[in-house]
Design a protein around this nucleic acid. Structure first.
Lengths: 239, 239
DNA sequence: CGCCTCATTGATAACCTTCAAGACCAGTGG
DNA sequence: CCACTGGTCTTGAAGGTTATCAATGAGGCG
């Protein structure tokens, strides 16, 4: 299901400093402003199906969407998180490579693919920014391959919480150490799909971390990390 | 250990039609020709360490290199294969994100990072090609995330053999069905690192597939697939 | 209240890893 | 020539981690 969403001027956009448009000059922003459309999706909505045409591409403004693949027998693996300012879509390719699903209510700032590609050609700044973002995504995907291939369930949970906590602190421009608190916006199922686990294992490992006072859970969806570095030490990182 | 390698003119380069330089016009090729250096590495050589400076970036001309991550306790996960024409390095970033290791003897066509970046700025064609290649890498990495997160050991082995068999058939320009034969160039350890398994599990699953006549092994390193589609059906693909 | 989704917890089982032993082969040096 | 060594691979037995199956609880909403 799709809802209309309030359209905000680019100058006041929350994703402005990190999105694909972040290096744009005022003239380019005006152009984007003219062709952009806001789209809001409810939690659970499928935004695009793997293999189907994607008529629009754009940035997440608010909320969380996921990229995921489904095997024939129903097994599912999330292969990417789309958080505010992240870009959805592959310019130059008409079809989606993966399912795109709204994990929470999510708002996109979208463009018709053809129009966006035309602007991209005329804006080396935006083109460059897109390359940077795609290379960042690639690094993130590869880090996640390490998690999926080699980390234990406990380490996977810790890694995810560290990732979300770090992202939260960055956005709030707070130090990423000591006490960190943030809302877990996604369900256990979404966590399991992302971590390559089952919801039961996710639940058990969260409980275990809670029993060890490495985290606290507030009504299932709020996370408090009393000592960020202590949790990070459980995430099986490289050093 | 590093060996000198014969320097070939770009016009006659085997990677020319698929590498980052594939869309370059003659003037750009001349420029690249002037600043390129060939480097050859022996199987097992470490080409770059994660976190260290990478003074050169460039394309694989021949052989296989892998990108991999190592956790503090020695667990290792391969996160990318570099095959001929693939690009190594992240323009704009001085340090390697992962270890780069020669899986076989491998030859690179390399450039000083700064010089390459300068050319990149002046060549929208090459810039565009680089973006395409990075987005391809991203899709491949995400497909592999599905394997690492959800597939069984048997499916992982089948997937790898199908991948290698398909590439072999493509290069030989033969149909990718019926009987397919190719050399396994890599060790069981390299397979295990790529598949997120142990060498024992790799060995057992290969033996199991052999017992079921889905594959034949010739002296441990040659693979014969009597019925490609039958093996593909064991790979746990999406449909 | 009944019904739904989401989450937790327990019991059991499956799969893969770990530990261990041995085969095979190539290279090396006595 | 042969013993010795190191590397690669296979196979077996045992154990651990996670999945599966099942029951229950908590919270939202008609």
């Amino acid at each position: 299901m799709q809802f209309p969403a309030v359209r905000v001027g680019c100058q006041h956009c929350g994703a402005r400093n990190r999105a694909v448009c972040s290096d744009c000059v005022p003239a380019e922003l005006e152009e984007l402003d003219r062709i952009k459309v806001y789209r809001r999706f409810a939690a659970g909505d499928t935004i695009a199906w793997a293999g189907e045409r994607m008529p629009m591409i754009g940035s997440v403004i608010e909320g969380v969407a996921v990229l995921s693949a489904t095997l024939s027998d129903g097994r599912r693996q999330t292969v990417g998180l789309l958080l505010p300012s992240d870009f959805l879509g592959r310019p130059g390719r008409a079809r989606a490579g993966f399912d795109v699903v709204a994990a929470t209510e999510v708002t996109f700032c979208m463009f018709r693919t053809a129009e966006f590609e035309r602007l991209l050609e005329q804006s080396p700044r935006m083109f460059n920014r897109l390359l940077e973002m795609k290379m960042d995504e690639l690094d993130v995907a590869r880090e996640w391959m390490v998690l999926l291939g080699r980390k234990t369930a406990r380490e996977r949970i810790a890694s995810l919480l560290v990732l979300l906590g770090r992202r939260e602190a960055e956005i709030a421009e707070r130090p990423v150490s000591g006490r960190v608190t943030f809302p877990l916006r996604i369900t256990r199922e979404a966590m399991a799909d992302y971590l390559g686990l089952t919801i039961e294992t996710v639940s058990r490992q969260l409980s275990q971390l809670r029993r060890e006072h490495l985290i606290r859970l507030v009504e299932n969806r709020g996370v408090e990390i009393p000592d960020f570095d202590a949790l990070a030490a459980e995430s099986g990182g490289p050093e």
